[in-house]
Simulated assay, not measured.
Amino acid sequence: MTREYVNSVCATLPGAELSDPWGGGHDAWKVGGKMFACVGTAGDGVSVKTADIETAQMLIDAGVGAKAPYFHRSWVRLPWSADPEEIQHRLLSSYDIIRSTLTKKVQATLPPRG
């Protein structure tokens, strides 16, 4: 998979916005101002939020991903060699997790996710 694949999946999500908050070529996808996916300047994979630290550790132990550098332990880095369906599933799950943490007022401004 590639940065372009991640961007194509994220671009379809309601209210998703692409930014480069640190400069230098990061692709940080946010909903309601909160990040749910990030491709760093190394371009070696995508970091996504998981439900909790235990889920992240399970994915790391299973070899699906690795600890996401610079992120909380509930985030994992999925390498480009990961199964495309796994990457898509994790992107959508991360989006849903972050979206659910937004205030009800902000959530109400977003269209439903298909």
Score class of each variant (00 low, 15 high):
52 D>S: 13
2 T>I: 08
109 T>W: 09
46 V>S: 00
40 G>F: 02
12 T>D: 12
34 K>P: 08
81 S>Y: 02
61 D>K: 05
17 E>S: 03
68 A>Y: 00
35 M>V: 13
93 S>N: 14
93 S>Q: 14
38 C>P: 05
75 W>E: 11
25 G>K: 03
34 K>T: 10
82 A>Q: 11
62 A>D: 15
58 M>W: 10
88 Q>I: 10
79 P>G: 00
26 H>A: 12
85 E>N: 13
45 G>I: 02
18 L>M: 05
112 P>D: 08
85 E>I: 10
53 I>C: 08
78 L>S: 04
41 T>F: 03
99 R>K: 15
114 G>I: 12
51 A>L: 14
49 K>I: 05
8 S>C: 03
103 T>W: 01
78 L>F: 02
34 K>A: 09
113 R>H: 11
103 T>C: 01
37 A>S: 09
108 A>T: 11
29 W>M: 11
10 C>R: 02
21 P>K: 05
24 G>D: 08
28 A>F: 00
66 A>M: 13
110 L>V: 10
69 P>Y: 03
88 Q>N: 12
9 V>W: 06
46 V>W: 05
18 L>I: 10
66 A>E: 15
8 S>L: 01
103 T>L: 08
53 I>H: 10
27 D>L: 07
59 L>I: 04
68 A>N: 01
86 E>V: 15
33 G>S: 07
82 A>V: 14
114 G>D: 14
36 F>C: 10
111 P>A: 15
30 K>Y: 07
83 D>V: 09
40 G>V: 04
69 P>G: 04
7 N>W: 02
102 L>H: 05
2 T>D: 14
46 V>K: 01
68 A>R: 04
34 K>S: 09
76 V>I: 15
109 T>H: 07
98 I>C: 04
55 T>L: 08
42 A>T: 13
62 A>L: 09
105 K>Q: 14
112 P>S: 03
33 G>V: 07
11 A>T: 12
57 Q>R: 13
67 K>P: 15
100 S>F: 05
63 G>K: 06
95 Y>T: 13
91 L>H: 00
54 E>L: 11
97 I>N: 08
50 T>F: 08
42 A>I: 01
105 K>D: 14
45 G>W: 04
22 W>Q: 12
69 P>A: 01
3 R>C: 01
5 Y>G: 06
46 V>A: 01
87 I>W: 08
75 W>C: 03
57 Q>G: 02
59 L>H: 08
107 Q>P: 03
92 L>E: 15
22 W>F: 15
51 A>N: 12
47 S>R: 02
61 D>Y: 04
38 C>K: 09
22 W>N: 12
96 D>Q: 15
63 G>Y: 07
58 M>I: 12
95 Y>D: 13
108 A>N: 14
100 S>C: 06
37 A>D: 06
19 S>N: 10
63 G>S: 00
114 G>V: 11
65 G>K: 07
71 F>K: 11
4 E>P: 00
15 G>E: 09
112 P>F: 03
46 V>R: 01
9 V>C: 07
